[in-house]
Amino acid sequence: MIRCSDGSLYTGITNDVQRRFQQHTDGLGAKYFRGRQPEALVYVETGHDRSSASKRESAIKKLPRTEKLQLLASAMNQITTMPL
């Protein structure tokens, strides 16, 4: 998940987190970033293949904001162990 300049949380999937975040920062990523800027990578979850990652992305996108914020503090968040 990426925290955006308007305070929203963007959820997506990739097999190269650093590259994809840089694409979003450079304006080459999702249309979601037109009119808002990516500020920080705040949540990363690993251990999925493409199929399960897509299903997990869909499930996360359906969560209310309060539950997404809970994910950020959960043990599932790999952001503290990933070098960025």
Rank of each mutant, 00 (worst) to 15 (best):
Phe33Cys: 04
Leu71Ser: 04
Ala40Glu: 14
Met76Lys: 15
Lys31Leu: 14
Arg65Phe: 10
Met76Leu: 11
Lys62Tyr: 01
Ser74Asn: 05
Arg20Thr: 14
Leu69Met: 12
Ser58Cys: 07
Gly12Cys: 05
Thr14Asp: 00
Tyr43Val: 02
Val17His: 06
Tyr43Asn: 00
Arg36Pro: 02
Cys4Ile: 00
Gln37Trp: 04
His48Ser: 08
Ile79Cys: 13
Thr81Cys: 08
Ala30Ser: 12
Ser8Cys: 05
Tyr43Ser: 00
Asn15Arg: 15
Glu67Pro: 02
Ser58Pro: 05
Lys61Cys: 07
Val44Ala: 11
Val44Gly: 09
Arg3His: 12
Thr80Asp: 12
Ala40Thr: 12
Arg19Phe: 11
Ile2Ala: 09
Asn77Val: 06
Asn77Ala: 08
Met1Glu: 06
Arg34Lys: 15
Gln23Asp: 14
Asp16Met: 02
Ile60Phe: 03
Arg19Asp: 04
Thr25Lys: 14
Arg34Glu: 14
Glu67Leu: 10
Arg34Ser: 13
Gln70Val: 00
Arg65Leu: 12
Ala30Pro: 02
Leu41Thr: 10
Pro64Met: 11
Ile13Ser: 09
Ser5Met: 07
Lys62Asn: 09
Ala59Met: 07
Ile2Thr: 12
Met82Glu: 13
Gln23Val: 02
Asp16Pro: 06
Ala30Lys: 11
Asn77Arg: 10
Arg65Asn: 14
Gly27Val: 12
Phe33Met: 03
Asp6Trp: 08
Gln22Lys: 15
Lys68Leu: 12
Ser52His: 08
Ser5Ile: 12
Asp26Pro: 01
Arg36Thr: 14
Pro64Leu: 10
Pro64Glu: 09
Thr11Arg: 13
Tyr32Leu: 09
Ala75Ile: 09
Gln22Met: 14
Arg56Ile: 01
Leu63Trp: 08
Cys4Tyr: 01
Leu41His: 01
Asp26Phe: 05
Pro38Met: 02
Thr11Gln: 05
Glu67Lys: 12
Ile60Gln: 01
Gly12Phe: 09
Ala59Asp: 08
Val42Ser: 08
Gly27Cys: 05
Thr46Trp: 10
Ala53Glu: 06
Met1Lys: 11
Gly35Val: 00
Thr81His: 12
Tyr10Trp: 14
Gly7Phe: 00
Asp49His: 05
Asn15Ala: 05
Arg20Val: 05
Ala53Pro: 02
Val17Ala: 13
Met1Arg: 08
Phe21Asn: 10
Asn15Val: 03
Leu41Tyr: 03
